[in-house]
């Protein structure tokens, strides 16, 4: 059995996009078997025209050992309607059905939007608001230190100030993007329509990420090099963010395997990932400095 891994990037509320990609892959002979943090695993089989449905379960958690009662009862109801559960990913459950005339899992758009909103509040909005608050507090501290020191605008302060503004705006766009989609969907449903397509939101998100990426490259290569400053802090930050995602993925999985309670798994994953990512980044940074790729302190 040939397995292939694909990196799937989508907005949490873009269920239509997920369903479309899964159906396309199914018609090419690739069936989804597992959805992970870093990639989704597909196996090659016959070219089947499976219909995929994505439904939201707000009580589900990637830190849980077992399924919630909601997930299990939903499985039974779906099985009765011919829907087979493929896998779960965070707060979504993915089902497939070979019958093209099968009743969709969610037939009431108002209920569907309600479940999406409950799931996205925990999945996207809460972490985004925490980061916005964090960046805002840092920004206030930087401004306070700048005025307290009575310095003229040094390049260092200016750089940190600009970075914080960019990250703050980027996170703000994430939140705004969602709420725009949510209120458009609500308006559409109020006049007997469907949830709004997330294609536009997806495009905004892509532009958002590209702009942050361009800023990071510009800051690291252009601004730093032109002014003779070293860009090692930016490299350190980027490596730390990548390592955080990697460490969080395996620690979460380990916690589930050991059988930790959900809250213990969540706290431990966040704390340990933070510590390990800083340690791993410092190690890599040390190696890069030792080999002369980065200037030292």
């Amino acid at each position: 059995m040939i397995k292939k891994k694909f990196i799937m990037s989508f907005l949490p509320y873009d269920y239509e996009g997920i369903e479309k990609v899964l159906s396309e892959k199914s018609s090419q002979g690739w069936q989804l078997v597992k959805a992970g943090e870093l990639y989704w695993t597909f196996v090659q089989g016959e070219r089947d025209e499976y219909q995929y449905n994505v439904t939201y379960v707000p009580s589900a958690s990637e830190y849980r050992v077992d399924d919630t009662e909601h997930q299990m009862v939903l499985d039974d109801l779906c099985a009765n309607a011919g829907w087979e559960r493929v896998c779960s990913y965070r707060k979504i459950q993915i089902y497939k059905n070979q019958d093209p005339l099968a009743v969709p899992i969610d037939t009431d758009e108002e209920q569907k939007l309600r479940m999406i909103h409950m799931a996205v509040k925990k999945w996207l909005l809460l972490p985004a608001w925490i980061l916005i608050l964090f960046f805002a507090l840092l920004l206030v501290s930087v401004i306070y230190m700048f005025f307290k020191r009575n310095d003229t605008m040094t390049l260092e302060f200016g750089k940190i100030f600009l970075c914080l503004i960019v990250f703050l705006v980027s996170k703000g766009i994430d939140v705004l993007n969602y709420y725009l989609w949510y209120f458009k969907s609500k308006k559409s449903i109020a006049t007997a329509g469907k949830c709004y397509s997330a294609k536009g939101a997806d495009l905004v998100q892509s532009i958002n990420m590209i702009l942050v990426f361009v800023f990071v490259i510009w800051d690291s290569l252009f601004l730093e090099l032109k002014t003779g400053q070293d860009f090692s802090e930016m490299v350190f930050l980027i490596i730390a963010i990548v390592f955080y995602q990697l460490h969080a993925a395996w620690i979460k999985k380990l916690g589930r395997y050991i059988g930790w309670p959900t809250m213990v798994n969540r706290v431990f994953t966040i704390f340990l990932s933070l510590v390990l990512s800083i340690y791993s980044s410092a190690l890599i940074w040390g190696v890069l400095v030792a080999r002369g790729f980065l200037p030292g302190l």
Binding site: L74, L77, N80, A81, V103, I105, Q111, M115
Partner: peptide, 25 residues
Amino acid sequence: GTDIMQQVHDLTEGRVRIGPGTLYN
């Protein structure tokens, strides 16, 4: 719950369809 979907289908002669996710919610 599992019987409700069929009953609604029979009662409305297939006009009203309730998905399992909607039913649960």
